[in-house]
Write a protein that binds this DNA or RNA. Structure first.
Lengths: 204, 204
DNA sequence: ACCTGAACACCGTTCAAGT
DNA sequence: ACCTGAACACCGTTCAAGT
């Protein structure tokens, strides 16, 4: 007769992966230790063996997962490097919209903190200016990236203006033709804002 | 003998106010229908009479509360108007850090949607350009404001580098002397980033 | 109209126990 | 070392009932 249950043993990575799948598919509020256990074919309590701080540790790990990005150092100018970081950051956040609230809210730890430091070092080394100037640029760029993804996710939840609801319809400006927005439009809007920001960062 | 309980009757506003107090003071995860009822000296189930969709309606209302800002139309240039909206938006979000995750994540509704439209109209009317240009500017500014507050809140939760934890300490760049940041520094960083963004928005 | 009480189907987490 | 089962103190929400 076949072995009973743990075809593949539990691991930190398998837990994170399953948790992301649930959060993205059903929403963060439905990510439950019991549901997570079910998805992993294990009793919920088994998870505590790998994540001793329980759900809090799980949340921390999820935030770090979508926020700890890496960018190969390049010999381009600082603007090119800034672009690379911005694109990498946006992609990582966008891949797992279900945990965006955590990513924007939890203090960066571990790999996320490393990413911030590396970004500052690369910008300073590529001619942006001294450490303080680079730190300010990183902060501003991070704010823009995180906020842009927030706007993008918010938009994907906008209700299309139903014919019957004239009240809502009157509120929708040119800026929002209403309803969900095609990904290319969101990407183009991100690009335009990023270029504006880089222009602003370069003058003084 | 005195009347029993409802010295002051329940109302939408009292509920929101109490909920914000709990979320800011103890965190969103501890904002519970039962705890909210306690704070209002009422059984939790009484809240459903004013918020028929229950906790979901409460969350929506909280997000709208910190996100539906107003700015008096002024005769300044578009940059001055953009500054006013950015400052108002940041202040409103910063006043209730406990519900930031909701504010950045829920699609804007009602007053929040009105705010977006008004901002676009004011910018277009004050010389920024046509409706499309104004819409792009609003989007970029909103992203920057929301992201900036996210960075600020994240920082307020940063652990100070304890002497014993050399690993974390090594990760903290010039950009993060470590530990919480004084509010004036956060405000100054916001201002510098905002000015860079406005510069970038004005060229082309 | 507004609020309560009891009930139901879930939660996170602990702890002793199994293998 | 890794997982289970039972238990505890909570959750959100429904529904009939009170005033």
């Amino acid at each position: 007769m076949p072995a009973k249950r743990p075809a593949v043993p539990l691991s930190h990575e398998r837990i994170i992966e399953a948790a992301l799948h649930i959060a993205d598919g059903q929403g963060l509020r439905r990510l439950t230790m019991r549901r997570l256990g079910d998805a992993l074919q294990v009793e919920a309590m088994a998870i505590y063996h790998h994540l001793p701080r329980g759900k809090e540790a799980l949340m921390d790990a999820l935030a770090e997962h979508v926020t700890a990005v890496t960018v190969e150092p390049s010999d381009g100018g600082w603007q090119e490097i800034a672009r690379a970081w911005a694109h990498a950051g946006r992609s990582a956040l966008l891949e797992h919209p279900g945990v965006l609230a955590l990513a924007l809210t939890k203090p960066p730890q571990g790999g996320a903190l490393m990413a911030i430091r590396e970004q500052a070092e690369q910008l300073a080394a590529s001619g942006l200016g001294d450490a303080a100037r680079a730190a300010q640029a990183v902060r501003t760029l991070r704010a823009y990236v995180m906020g842009s993804v927030a706007v993008e996710i918010q938009r994907s939840g906008w209700a299309a203006p139903t014919g019957g609801d004239e009240d809502e319809q009157a509120l929708l400006p040119a800026l929002a033709s209403g309803g969900a927005e095609p990904p290319e439009e969101a990407a183009a809007a991100f690009e335009r804002g990023l270029e504006a920001l880089l222009r602003g960062l370069s003058r003084t």
